[in-house]
Design a binder for these strands. Structure first.
Length: 216
DNA sequence: CCAAAGATCGTCT
DNA sequence: GACGATCTTTGGA
C-alpha cells in the first residue's frame, strides 16, 4: 500500500448528495467506498460511475415509473444503497440520487483498491490480475463482500458508507464521459453519455489497458 | 402459472 | 470473440 488511511473515516454528509444526478455521478469519482466487516475494513476509490434517470431512461429499472418492490429504494431520498442481483449471479451497487419521488440512481462500476487488499483477494479467488479484483460492478461488490442484505442502507454510517477522497472534487479535465455499458436493449437511451470515469485510470472497466501484472 | 430477459463475468477457442 | 452459468424479477395468460 502506498499510503495509509486514518483509523476512523468520516462519512460524507447528506448535503453531498444534494445536487443533480449527473453532477453527483461525477462528484462520486475519487471518493472512497468503505465496508467494515468483522474480518476487517476494505476501502476502494471510485473511478467509474453510471447515472440512471428513471422516468425517461429506458435503461433504468425505474423507467416509465415502474415502481416495484425491487425499485422501491430508488424512489426514496438520495444517498441510500440500491443493490440488486444481475444475471442470477452478481450484485450491483448503486447510490440513490435526486429527491424523494424521483427514481434516480448511480451505479458504481469500478474501484481502485486502497485498503484491505488481502481480504478482497480472499473474497474473490478467481481474480487473476490486480485490476480484475475491482474493475467491474459485479467484481467490486464481490471483492468488498457487499450483498443485497445491505440494500436500502443509508450510506452515512458503518458498515457501508462513502468518505471523502484525497483529491476531490476532481478537476473537470480528469473526468471523461461516454455511453453506458451493457444496455444495448435500451433503444435511444443506449447513446446517452451518462457514464463517467477518471481519465486513463487503470481500474476503469471494459477498456484496453496495458498488460497487467499477474496477481499471485 | 409460466416464460423471458437481464446495468456481468470467467473460460474457452 | 463466443458462450454458458445461474436465479430473481417482471409481465402476461
Amino acid at each position: 500500500m502506498r499510503f495509509t488511511l486514518p483509523p476512523v473515516l468520516t462519512p460524507l454528509p447528506s448535503s453531498f448528495y444534494e445536487r443533480s444526478t449527473l453532477a453527483l455521478a461525477q462528484a462520486l469519482l475519487g471518493q472512497l467506498l468503505v465496508h467494515e466487516t468483522p474480518e476487517g475494513r476494505m476501502v476502494g476509490k471510485i473511478v467509474e460511475t453510471e447515472a440512471y434517470i428513471g422516468p425517461y431512461d429506458k435503461a433504468a429499472h425505474s423507467y416509465n415509473d415502474r415502481r416495484t418492490k425491487r425499485t422501491e429504494v430508488m424512489y426514496g431520498p438520495a444517498g441510500v444503497s440500491y443493490i440488486y442481483l444481475i444475471y442470477g449471479m452478481y450484485e450491483c451497487l448503486n447510490v440513490t440520487a435526486s429527491q424523494e419521488g424521483k427514481p434516480h440512481a448511480i451505479l458504481i462500476r469500478a474501484l481502485e483498491p486502497i485498503e484491505g487488499l488481502a481480504l478482497m483477494q480472499k473474497n474473490r479467488p478467481k481474480a487473476r490480475t490486480l485490476t480484475a479484483l475491482t474493475s467491474g460492478p459485479g467484481r467490486l461488490t464481490q471483492a468488498l463482500g457487499i450483498t443485497r442484505e445491505l440494500n436500502g442502507h443509508e450510506l452515512r454510517r458503518p458498515p457501508l458508507y462513502l468518505a471523502q477522497g484525497t483529491h476531490t472534487p476532481l478537476p473537470q479535465h480528469q473526468i471523461a464521459r461516454g455511453p453506458r455499458i451493457g444496455i444495448h436493449y435500451a433503444q435511444e437511451a443506449r447513446h446517452f453519455p451518462w457514464r463517467f470515469w477518471i481519465k486513463d485510470h487503470p481500474f476503469v472497466s471494459k477498456v484496453k489497458h496495458e498488460p497487467r501484472e499477474p496477481l499471485r
